[in-house]
Design a protein around this nucleic acid. Structure first.
Lengths: 228, 228
DNA sequence: CAAAAGATTTAGTCATACCTGAATTCTATT
DNA sequence: AATAGAATTCAGGTATGACTAAATCTTTTG
């Protein structure tokens, strides 16, 4: 058995979500984890103790003070995330899934693919650095590409950006954005900004697009590279 | 969740192996199942009771008398087998695995792919009816293609056959046959037969092949279609 | 700063899904 | 009818994790 399988699916899920919270700069609280994992906070505390006491320790955990991943924990998390994102890419590129359909499938497959399959899948897909949502895929050594993106919400009228990433697993949101023509690779110009509600009016740079308004909640989940 | 996931991996494995034993005409004994599943006979008895009492019942089980699959049990078994064989086909056709490398990977993946993925995979591969070992793949409605093959062991000198199936998961055997040029699709002529040990001398119908001897144990695992 | 609110942890349970050895019972063979 | 071998029952064990309720800690707020 390869290294990534010494951990149960559940342990891998905890590590994955800890990593994802850290990655987004959100606080890794017991409650946040409980929500994501759909368990009770008490269960999270229990698992955090296990992760901290495991050999090797996967997290550093001081009660009431929060959680950090150890090197081993980070590796395990990135391994699962690499699996997840490669699988999502495969489902879209090779099997004709749309980007709102891939998440659950990837969540089940990510725990059972071997290192060999991971490698061959990556190679089949051309060693992609980003998945269909623009999420970065750790490379074979689990290194991530540098991230120079900003949330769309931070752009102001006149500024131009290219969409790099849509950070959401919500089917409806993804379908909505898809339908508005907002997906990674698309450029857009900000036309207006309302300081009261944070709404942005944007114009995608595609021939048949017209300007429309996008709310703060959404524009915080869309990440862009600012264009000169 | 789709139907195939109401059963645990372990239940699916029991059903699969019951089906495979039945398919090969071998007796579905407690010991045979225990060997295949690498557990003790006592554990098998325990699980058989569960499978018989489950709702719907998956097997008909009278103690000391053997096991039959119910319709539901057969469907569940065929579902897993379809997954397994489609995945093996995919690994070979799309990812460049050799036929001796695919079994373990398929054994893990077969339990976690959705009906949707199953369908798309099948379609990507052109709805294959046979996997890389020549094992028949149940179609979407779980029907199997008719089987008109005979074990190579039953051919006699002068008879010609085309290999349809190699019924083994043993890596070494598969590699050996591969190297001898014996894989599904290949035609051969039987040149000699020894009634004492059951050895067959065969000549593959390929340009650079020379006759060689194949033992009874092996020739019972290779299935051919007799050619006129 | 004290009290309330909110988040987190502890303690004690429960549940699932198996597996096991040892003793027993059944079946088939001779 | 004795016996070998196969199968079953019994009582118990392990591994994962989840849960509630009560206690404790931290943060906020009047």
């Amino acid at each position: 058995m390869t290294k990534s399988f010494v951990y149960t699916a559940s342990i891998q899920d905890y590590l994955k979500h800890i990593y994802l919270l850290l990655e987004r700069g959100e606080a890794v609280t017991t409650t946040a984890l409980a929500q994501r994992l759909k368990v009770r906070p008490a269960s999270v505390t229990g698992m955090l103790r296990r992760l901290a006491r495991s050999e090797p320790p996967l997290i550093v955990y001081q009660k009431h003070r929060g959680v950090m991943l150890t090197e081993a924990g980070k590796r395990a998390a990135l391994e699962v995330i690499r699996h997840h994102r490669l699988i999502e890419t495969w489902l879209v590129q090779s099997l004709g899934y749309s980007w709102d359909e891939v998440h659950e499938e990837a969540c089940r497959l990510e725990h059972v693919i071997s290192e060999q399959l991971e490698a061959r899948l990556a190679s089949l897909l051309g060693n992609p650095a980003y998945d269909p949502h623009g999420d970065p895929i750790p490379d074979q050594d689990l290194n991530l590409p540098p991230d120079t993106t900003l949330p769309l919400a931070s752009l102001r009228p006149g500024q131009q950006g290219r969409i790099c990433r849509v950070q959401s697993e919500q089917k409806e949101l993804l379908r909505y954005l898809e339908q508005k023509g907002l997906r990674p690779g698309v450029s857009l110009v900000v036309v207006d900004y309302s300081p009261f509600d944070g709404n942005l009016t944007i114009l995608p740079q595609s021939p048949d697009a017209s300007p429309f308004v996008i709310g703060l909640a959404v524009s915080l989940k869309v990440f862009v590279e600012v264009l000169p």
